[in-house]
Design a protein around this nucleic acid. Structure first.
Lengths: 348, 348
DNA sequence: TTTTTTTACGCAATCGTTCCCGATAACGAT
DNA sequence: ATCGTTATCGGGAACGATTGCGTAAAAAAA
């Protein structure tokens, strides 16, 4: 007892017409008499006919759907970005298929393969933390599958990209800490392969150097799993706190890392910002409710999703092959709250 | 320049075999010689052949995918539930297609229609707050499409359901507040249609009455949009605080409502729990980081997703029609923290 | 009236795959 | 020598929709 929707053939049989006539009548072709057309349309309406998208996909080799590849949706940044994606896609008649890589390279490959074989019309991708080889995208891209990267991009593939100004964000955050009197500023960040990691690291570095502070590699900790594993963050933090010249502040990259670090600090009975100050990349919607209120860099997640989707649909619907690509850089939002308050020395 | 994967026909042509032979060889049919089989398998491996899932879907009327209908993924409960869904589905060879209703009935209908026409093998559904009429599900269900409801269920449709023990959760939360000395306990909850709303309301009511406290309808505020609109929560809260007998505590249903209420309270410069105490349904992963630390009822979101998916796949893969259905009730997790601390009077 | 044009529709191929039937051997049994 | 069996494989329909091409009848032009 399967679900059996009414097909164009059923309509044809019921009305004594061929499938081609029914098809053309439904699309309003000029070569069908208005009588027949009316008859078909009314009957189709009556039986609630819906064209089978699978049959269409098979024939047209397109599916009116776009695939999204992110590492996880249980993350404020990505769920907000997906909302942005959906808001555009839905209005343009595309459906969105989401898949999660859980920061795993293999899983990313499998997901991409599957989406491609499902004839998605295009792909919106934010790379996993494990991904250094992007050949699974290259192949598809060379064969003409439109791809737009957002947030975690690859510079090996020439296509549209949508990113936040991570350099400036990290730079501003670091300068802010410096201005508030902190001198030993650490950086807990995501997987070293990622573009966001590199950009943020550069911003952090530049801020230090431009302000006469040394850049110390020991102050930079990478979390390969992007904070999905608590121990990773705790380890990084413990490690930092056991350096002889203990950091008095740090900048954390990403939602998970930020909240994970805060939790670890809390467990160590340290006070923020007195013992250690913090500025975090975070898209949480409750920075004000945290103790202390959290100084955050907020990613323009929703907008990034929107822009990426618009660019992707532009490629998909372009008549001729697109050869000119752009990289959109959106601005982050820096909000100073208590977690990065004046350093104890500066307060005096 | 479309993406053109290799087909079974290509293999046949290259090897001088018919498509049927190739197909059978790939499926390991007994009526193909092991030589041919080997030849085909090797060539298929070489050219990285992947069966076209769309063609398969068209032919087999199934897609090895399950559709998920939730109101929004940018919500801890749902994103965690989806992780549970994915964890099972992925291992069982199903792909997951997510769609959001954004608490809109029309959108839910459209999404369901689309998923059905995409030949999903089954549906995992959590109803939108606007949905009182479930006929869009009834039709499909009667025609044999497997559906499992989770969290926000409908009792008009007889099928498997997975819910949390909302009654007990709300009951326990209310009793806890009563025991801590609060006497005027309000309840800010989600849309009145929803099963979760009713169950929680009953638990709240029972706790009051069993403890000799009156049930006051004015103390119950419904947020039809589930807290997606800030004004809704602020309005409810302001309304509550202007009752002559002001509430001294409340129970909030749902992540958005909980954090929204806390924000509103903070904006009103009220202290928690001194001015007003709070127990909230919330799946946030940082209740400890909030100020005050939040007494929460945590939904078993991940497990609910897992169980629902297992039940769904059981129906999908069942040889004969399933007629016996069950409703699984999972336990919530109640963690007492500071937001529901002893009432000022009780402290003395 | 004959020819041409227009109107209105059907046929069949196509997309990739599966699977029901046949078909053709080879081989042993009768 | 004939038949039945078995092993291997191919032909072609089917899934639902679109579309180029062909064509009958009707209408218009000659």
């Amino acid at each position: 007892m399967k679900y059996e929707p009414v097909t164009i053939k059923d309509i044809g049989k019921a009305l004594g017409l061929s499938t081609s006539t029914v098809s053309r009548a439904l699309r309003g072709s000029y070569e069908i008499s208005s009588e027949t057309k009316k008859q078909v349309l009314e009957y189709a309406e009556k039986v609630n006919y819906r064209p089978n998208p699978i049959a269409l996909s098979l024939k047209e080799r397109r599916s009116s759907s776009i695939g999204v590849v992110v590492c996880e949706i249980a993350n404020n940044f990505f769920s907000q970005a997906i909302n942005g994606i959906e808001s555009i896609a839905y209005n343009r008649g595309y459906h969105v298929i989401i898949s999660q890589s859980h920061e795993s390279y293999e899983r990313e490959v499998v997901n991409v393969q599957h989406l491609a074989s499902r004839s998605v019309d295009g792909l919106l991708v934010s790379l996993s933390g494990e991904t250094s080889d992007v050949s699974h995208f290259t192949h598809l891209h060379e064969k003409g599958l439109p791809i737009v990267f957002f947030d975690r991009v690859s510079n090996e593939i020439i296509t549209h990209k949508v990113i936040a100004d991570n350099y400036k964000a990290a730079y501003d955050a670091t300068v802010h800490l410096i201005n508030n009197g902190y001198k030993n500023i650490a950086h807990i960040t995501s997987a070293p392969f990622l573009s966001i990691t590199k950009e943020r690291l550069e911003g952090y570095k530049a801020a230090l150097l431009e302000n006469g502070l040394p850049f110390n590699e020991k102050y930079v900790k990478f979390c390969s799993h992007g904070g999905m594993i608590v121990e990773e963050i705790e380890g990084a933090l413990n490690n930092l706190l056991h350096i002889k010249q203990k950091p008095d502040a740090f900048v954390t990259a990403g939602d998970r890392i930020t909240t994970g670090s805060l939790t670890a600090i809390k467990n160590l009975q340290l006070k923020v910002p007195e013992d250690i100050a913090l500025v975090g990349f975070s898209n949480t919607n409750i920075p004000e409710l945290m103790a202390p209120t959290l100084t955050t860099i907020r990613m323009p997640a929703f907008e990034m999703g929107q822009v990426a989707t618009e660019l992707l649909i532009r490629i998909i619907e372009s008549k001729r092959p697109v050869t000119e690509f752009e990289t959109r850089v959106l601005q982050t939002e820096f909000t100073i709250r208590n977690s990065s308050g004046l350093s104890p020395e500066n307060k005096k």
